[in-house]
Amino acid sequence: MDRNNLIKWLKEPKKMGNKYSLWAVYFSTACGVIEVPPVLTSRWDAERFGVIPVATPRQANLFLITGYVTTKTLKAIIRTYEQMAEPKYTIGFGSCPINGGMYWDSYNTIKHLDKFIPVDGWIAGCMPRPEAIFIGVTKLWGMIDKGLATGYIRYREHYDYYRGNQERLFGSMEWPPLYSLKEGTHDE
């Protein structure tokens, strides 16, 4: 650890803690997960970057959405995302969550993930290489440093928009709203 880093740690311990302990939810959303095991195991060893998978979303603050999202999975994703403690960061992995990718005309996959939950960063490609996950993670570090990774704040402040879109897709929702639907009541 160099001197600058040490000063940073002393000045902003919370931010540095967030940055270097990105614990990921263990949720194999779709086909992108096939590049996650190599990243976690011996060859690429994601623990160097502080990324480890954890069993429950309550302990996690990184949500790696790996691949296309069907309507049924989206429900599970939203429930998982809402259970995570703040601050929480989302990375969309692969082309499909960005704009539908290969499945742009499929009747069962949603095309733009950021219409339903906030996404902090995207990793494009099908499949992206494992190195791309690290680039994504280091970019996320930079965003946390500069205070740009504010997806969870956006979710809180514009909950009426996100919840409205979710209800529009699902018809009725089985669980109550996480925040009050009146906007502007959740300033930090």
Partner: peptide
């Protein structure tokens, strides 16, 4: 049922997914 030939998939996608506003539009 979606696999019937008279089910127009692309029209369904347009109506269901593409009509949802993006954050910028909102």
């Amino acid at each position: 049922p979606p696999f019937r030939k008279d089910f127009d998939m692309r029209k369904y996608v347009k109506d269901t997914y593409d009509s949802i506003p993006s954050f910028e539009e909102y």
